[in-house]
Design a protein around this nucleic acid. Structure first.
Length: 418
RNA sequence: GUGGGUAUAGCUCAGUUGGUUAGAGCGCCAGAUUGUGGCUCUGGAGGCCGUCGGUUCGACCCCGAUUAUCCACCCCA
């Protein structure tokens, strides 16, 4: 136990972290180009936020949250998703008073007490986007375009964008009545969970994976065919905006999303290459959420994108994530006097913006060379009694083996010029 | 919460129809004559064969339990 990470958690070790740095770098760049700025928020919130925001009937809230009382007896929950927290911060900091829209992104850990499997952890990390203040369908498309641009930039191709509209409170209410009427005679043949869903959230029955439920609802009416004028206009313009951005999509009337806050646009980006958990990005519009959480009525749209899954898809696509050479120069040193000079030299080089390292293991020269090679140092300088007394050194270029003789004072300039 | 697979070196995995000293490849460390890496060769370190219990003269191997892990269901990123 002592030396084992808790179930469903993973270390990113130094030799692997470059992958994360690379994708995070691309994400920051894309966000900057699209006008999204980073927001950093706590890893835990008051439990009520998620109960209210995510929805009390959802699986996430009912059985997956890490909830505990702190020492003062407050009920605290480790965030299971990012949107509720972003909404809370938007309200609490009065960001709605600024010029709208508010476009922000974040990286956040998310915690859900689930059975781990491929592409699913108890702690995973999401890149999220939230755009508040605009109900313009083009911003729905923009948000999706950010995710699609990311996949494209990474060279991920075997993914599919699926969209749907799940209406607004007014047309959903009418639709729910219609749906319940349709389901009523079939109720006894549905699975137990769907019987429960019938009253609380009948929309979810459409998404049930049980064969017996699927068989019952082959001709079920879909939300998308029962939208009110406003919602269907929004969906129409949303599709046009996707076309304008040249994003391919498939309309999937069964997308309902497992979080209660969605209205109008709902979408998923899926792949079939990383196992059963193929949803690689999910999101949509949530026009009622800010008001539900106690803020001024404000529309919003966003998504969550799992970084662990992103790396899995990248791997399944054989995407080569560039591994940077992490050391500019290695100082091979021999003898006590050289050790001291090397320490000083390395420190001076670092101060001038050069990644420099030296021997700490008392290794032979040959072993130091091997080590320099292993850490893919670009240059090596051998420092011994002779170099110290003359002040003249040879800089070896490790990629072609060539050596240049320079004075020790010229070293920093030499490295920088290469 | 439910079901199935797996558990042997840092990693990926062999293996013993139950018999005394547990193996490989990679990785790590060292060496192959003077102060120079990548290739090659040689050597070395490193395993109470997940844990507990049972069967047996004897268990890493068979049985049970337990824990962990992987995959899948539900749901989600």
């Amino acid at each position: 136990m002592l030396t084992q990470a808790p179930k469903g958690t993973k270390d990113v070790i130094p030799s692997e972290v470059y992958k994360w740095h690379f994708v995070e770098g691309i994400i920051r760049e894309i966000c900057a180009f699209n006008g999204y700025r980073e927001i950093r928020t706590p890893s835990f919130e008051h439990t009520e936020l998620f109960e209210r925001g995510v929805g009390e009937t959802t699986d996430v809230v009912q059985k997956e949250m890490y909830t505990f009382n702190d020492k003062a007896g407050r009920s605290i929950t480790l965030k299971p998703e990012g949107t509720a927290t972003a909404v809370r911060a938007f309200i609490e900091n009065g960001i709605f008073n600024d010029a709208q829209p508010t476009k922000m992104f974040y990286f956040t850990p998310c915690f859900r007490y689930e059975q781990p499997q491929s592409g699913r952890l108890r702690e995973h990390h999401q890149f999220g986007i939230e755009a508040f203040g605009s109900s313009d369908p083009s911003i729905d498309a923009e948000v999706i375009n950010i995710a699609m641009t990311l996949y494209k930039r990474l060279g991920i191709s075997n993914i599919e964008l699926r969209i749907n509209s799940i209406g607004c409170p007014s047309c959903r209410k009418e639709y729910n009545a219609k749906l319940k009427e349709y389901l009523k005679p079939k109720l006894t043949s549905l699975c137990e969970t769907c019987k429960g869903r019938y009253e609380k959230n009948p929309l979810r029955i459409i998404d049930c994976k049980e064969e017996k439920c699927k068989a019952q609802i082959t001709d079920v009416p879909f939300m998308i065919d029962n939208l009110c004028k406003e919602c269907s206009d929004h969906f129409f313009d949303f599709k046009r905006a996707l076309d304008t951005l040249e994003l391919e999509y498939k309309i999937d009337p069964r997308i309902v999303r497992g979080l209660d806050y969605y209205t109008k646009t709902a979408f998923e980006i899926v792949t079939d290459t990383i196992g059963a958990q193929g949803t690689v990005c999910g999101g949509g519009r949530y026009d009622g959420l800010v008001a539900d959480c106690g803020g001024p009525s404000t529309p919003g749209v966003g998504f969550g994108l799992g970084l662990e899954r992103l790396l899995l898809v990248a791997e399944s696509n054989n995407v080569q994530l560039p591994k940077p050479a992490y050391m500019d120069i290695y100082i091979a040193n021999m003898g006590a006097a050289a050790g001291e000079v090397a320490l000083k030299l390395v420190n001076a080089l670092r101060g001038q913006g050069i990644k420099a390292d030296k021997d700490y293991m008392g290794r032979s020269l040959k072993a130091q060379m091997k080590y320099a090679n292993k850490i893919s140092a670009r240059f090596v300088v051998v420092l011994g009694d002779e170099e110290i007394s003359t002040g003249s050194i040879k800089v070896k270029n490790m990629s072609d083996g060539s050596e240049a003789s320079i004075s020790i004072d010229e070293l920093a300039g030499f490295i920088k010029s290469k």
